[in-house]
Amino acid sequence: MDLYYDPVVDEHVSSPMGLIAPVWYLAPQRREVAESAWTMVATLTGLLGGGELSGIEDPTLASLLAWHTGEFVDGEVKARLWEHLDQIFEPSWDHDLGEFTFGFGLDEPHPRGQLNARAMAGWVCTPGAWSRIFNEPGQGRFTQPTVGGVDFPRVAMSEARWDGTALRLAAHPQNASVAGTRTSIRITGLAPDVGWTLIRPDGSTTPIDLSVDPTGTELEIVVDGGGYELRAG
């Protein structure tokens, strides 16, 4: 496989990296080619087949594999790879900031952005999720109920999705000092001609008066991961 071709001197420079490096970009377009290349690397490194992991002590290759693996597999294989990363690449939690990074053994004052970004893309990616961005873009979310005004980074939404009949919400705290506090969020895009009810994690309900304010209807929720529903009727 060409790593690159020079048409001026008509030279082909070959390397397996010519197949491996584009996997992320091929996946939404030629999934079978991308998955074959990923499978080759996963097999050679022992990630597939149950052998001992090898050849992924290098942060660049390890983060590349972590990145690509998220698009193709979940469960035991992904967990095994991440156990390897956690063992050798200096995982670090800043519990005040709520930030996780790998040091990758680079002895640098700040975590390396590119390597961490790649690994985190693989961590958050579930099989096929990257391809769906391009092939099932889901434009409907722009006309459905939407959450705004979240006090980020103090608060992040761990769930915020419209399931067709209800807006499902859960708030995640940045750190222990925020956990269990109350926070305000604003909801836009609620149909005005139906009544809305907020269902709390404990099952209690409250009717919601829609605001005429264009910035939306304000809700107060507890930042503890508990699931809320905003339901019509």
Binding site: A117, R118, V124, W130, G138, P145, M157, A160
Partner: peptide, 21 residues
């Protein structure tokens, strides 16, 4: 650093499609 950082951001956004701000 910019482009590689964008992938996780887009994927995270799709995990909470009603919260994108």
């Amino acid at each position: 650093d910019l482009i590689d950082s964008s992938y996780a951001v887009a994927l995270m956004s799709d995990r909470t499609p009603a919260w994108r701000e």
